[in-house]
Design a protein around this nucleic acid. Sequence first.
RNA 1: CGGGAAAUAGCUCAGCUUGGUAGAGCGCUUGGUUUGGGACCAAGAUGUCGCAGGUUCGAAUCCUGUUUUCCCGACCA
Length: 413
Amino acid sequence: MKQSLMFVPTMRDMPKDAEIVSHKILLKGGYIKQHAAGVYSYLPLAYKIIKKIENIVREELDKIGCSELLMPALQSKDLWVESGRWEAYGKELMRLKDRHDRDFCLGPTHEEVITAIVRDSITSYKKLPVALYQIQTKFRDEFRPRFGLMRGREFIMKDLYTFSTSTEDLDIWYNKVRQAYINIMDRLGLHYRIVNAASGQIGGKSSEEFMVLCDIGEDTIVYSDTGTFASNTELCQLEEGAPSPDGIGIIKHAKGIEAGHIFKLGTKYSEPMNLTFIDEDNKKKPVIMGCYGIGISRLLMAVLEQHNNDLKVLWPDSVAPFKIHIIPMDKVNTAGYEIATTLYSQLISKGYEVLFDDRSESPGVKFNDADLIGCKYQIIVGKKAVEGIVELRNKANNEILEIEIEKIQKYSF
RNA sequence: CGGGAAAUAGCUCAGCUUGGUAGAGCGCUUGGUUUGGGACCAAGAUGUCGCAGGUUCGAAUCCUGUUUUCCCGACCA
């Protein structure tokens, strides 16, 4: 009997619109579907990964004392006028009117809303500091969306805001979040570099970017070979081979994807928006803010860009959509298929995430799709299944092992 | 927003120069043969040729406008 276990609409032909490898894989492998320029549906496979990335982010932020909330994507003009960004943000801000002809925008970021929330509920130093974050769909009407999820007009972002009574406390939070970001990037299996950056629209004094290193990155970074200096070229342009400004090492260049950006905002929003608190000395002071972003959907692409080899994918354990991919060679309603089905149920009941290829496709089709899906373990249920033997492939080390079904039930994946 | 390319079946594309019944491969449906790296045979279904005007007896094809998508640039957490 046909089981509908997963909707993974893979393609045979290469989608014409994709230029970079990770984008090709996402389309060909049935991960995402384009809706408009820079707007995509996350199909089940991609959404499973997105949720895992989100949860890693949640764990690391909750651990340092942040609280998750969810703010509206649809925002009225008023707060944006208060902050001065209704004018300053320009055409990148998605603007619309409601039926009463009132102005709204779709949030590209949430400094205004969060500032208003905190402003109305916190007036005393006794209630600070506060750290609030959300994971939400953001909207930016980019001049030129491109490379699939790399630069979308609608994308998933984690944005965190901290509210402190002093710059010293902001520094403490900044460093805690910085470390949380390091943990997140490490858990995602990424090669990255932290660089000094310009703070652009968001504002504030200093900021650092977490750049995932890869050739298709839109940013160029300069760094010293000793690792003691790194900057985005938008801030600091140095020739390759030049001495590093810190006097240690030689300058090198690399391309990177901006996956995270952390800012010390200071009072950029609290002053115009009148976010103040009463301090111990009974004086009214502006709250000192920080803000910290991670591009969740962009990270999906960044991880993929670093974890594929010639259209063959191997997701890191931390975000893999499934741990085990069972591929029966026999068609539905055969002995081998029934054995595979039973094995699937057993592994599921043991708590493993298992994908079962329930299609009556030829082996080549199944193997090619499996390469795109990128599970670490593949269990091939073939001719020897009736003798109690299946093949276990470990894609991480390319080990192929003929193993008894009884042993696989007890195998520690 | 400047420059370039493109839009025809679910996907990849041909047809357009020189106007005359809408095509191929893959995918899909049915039957059969296959089955360890994108199998084979047979039969079938699938289209507002992006949209709107214009020229013409007749437009996927020529003309005008428009929308959309991709690439390069500028811009940008």
